[in-house]
């Protein structure tokens, strides 16, 4: 089998995978849910990169978004609320050959899993982390999340969220050894595809916050953002997310931003007046913890046995 890739190059693998080869069961998200578009973009990236399905592991926590592994071919790990990242890092730690996707929600990642979020970014293992940020707890039916905008009414704060929302971008950019921070909206499929592709192709932990529509609980929030593109700021750069032709016309605000410039990225992230979309920061030189955690993988049984005996010798009497 063979197939054509989007740049017209020919994939001559003996197995060629179509979009269907990356799908599993039919998604059970609500009609109009932004998660559907994210899933489609991931499938396209998988096909474009012709990832071996059996080498793919999709890890998630709990939430609507964390259903993703059930819709991905290959191996999936739909674990505990907030704990996708430690599991994903553990998978990678002694199996650097596997291709790891993490799907997590704003509650899953920024609230219950916040400690793991910060530390996983610092470990910078070669995994792709997609946060489906709908600004609400979807699965448990409309409780305030860390990114719920102030004064949005929720079931836990019926008179409106009490605190200003947490800013996932400034926090991520503040983590030492951070290597990839991007933000995108779910309703721009070409850019979403390019963003996820760039994230996946990056070596290290790529953190992508995807602003995701939840028409069931956060319709007002989505409409506000979708209706007025002036709220968005497109980040452009030759080292950034490629902007497909024509797509740029949708953005009245655009900024040339060099993703190697961390202070500039922090400034953009902290500016509340506009929602940046594109690549805020990338560092290809950051240390990858998986290179440390996978030491000794090539040891033979004989070498290990000699190692055990050498260790025992130190205690022998």
């Amino acid at each position: 089998m063979f197939g054509l890739k989007s740049d017209w190059s020919l994939s001559a693998n003996d197995r060629y995978f179509t979009l269907d080869d990356y799908a599993r069961s039919l998604p059970r998200w609500c009609t109009g849910c932004g998660d559907l578009g994210i899933l489609a973009a991931i499938h396209r990236v998988c096909r474009e990169n012709q990832i071996l399905p059996e080498n793919m592991v999709s890890v998630s926590g709990i939430g609507c978004s964390s259903r993703l592994p059930h819709y991905m071919n290959g191996y999936g790990f739909h674990g505990l609320h907030g704990r996708a990242l430690p599991v994903a890092c553990g998978v990678k730690s002694r199996r650097p050959d596997l291709d790891i996707w993490v799907a997590t929600g704003d509650g899953d990642c920024f609230s219950i899993g916040a400690a793991h979020w910060v530390h996983a970014l610092r470990y910078n293992m070669d995994i792709t982390v997609l946060v489906f940020d709908n600004g609400i707890y979807g699965l448990t039916k409309k409780q305030t999340s860390p990114t719920t905008p102030e004064e949005y009414l929720t079931n836990t704060h019926p008179t409106g969220a009490l605190l200003p929302p947490l800013n996932p971008l400034t926090i991520s950019l503040g983590v030492s050894n951070i290597s990839f921070v991007a933000q995108m909206v779910d309703w721009n499929p070409p850019l979403l595809y390019e963003t996820i592709k760039a994230a996946h192709d990056h070596k290290g932990t790529s953190f992508v916050r995807i602003i995701q529509r939840c028409p069931v609980y956060m319709e007002a929030l989505n409409l506000e953002m979708m209706d007025d593109p002036a709220n968005l700021l497109l980040l452009r750069h030759e080292d950034g997310i490629p902007v497909p032709e024509g797509v740029d016309r949708l953005f009245e605000n655009q900024l040339e931003h060099d993703p190697s410039n961390l202070p500039a990225a922090l400034g953009i992230a902290a500016d509340k007046s506009k929602m940046p979309v594109g690549l805020l920061y990338r560092n290809d030189e950051a240390l990858c913890y998986d290179e440390l955690s996978s030491v000794g993988l090539d040891m033979t049984y004989e070498e290990k046995l000699a190692g055990v005996n050498a260790a025992l010798d130190k205690f022998s009497v």
């Binding site: 674990g79 505990l80 530390h119 030491v295 000794g296 290990k304 190692g307």
Partner: peptide, 19 residues
């Protein structure tokens, strides 16, 4: 290292077992 192993000090016990 004598047997090619690695000690991961995680950020907390939950992460340790998750890993």
């Amino acid at each position: 290292h004598l047997t090619g192993g690695f000690v991961h000090q995680a950020e907390d016990e939950i992460a340790a077992i998750g890993f």
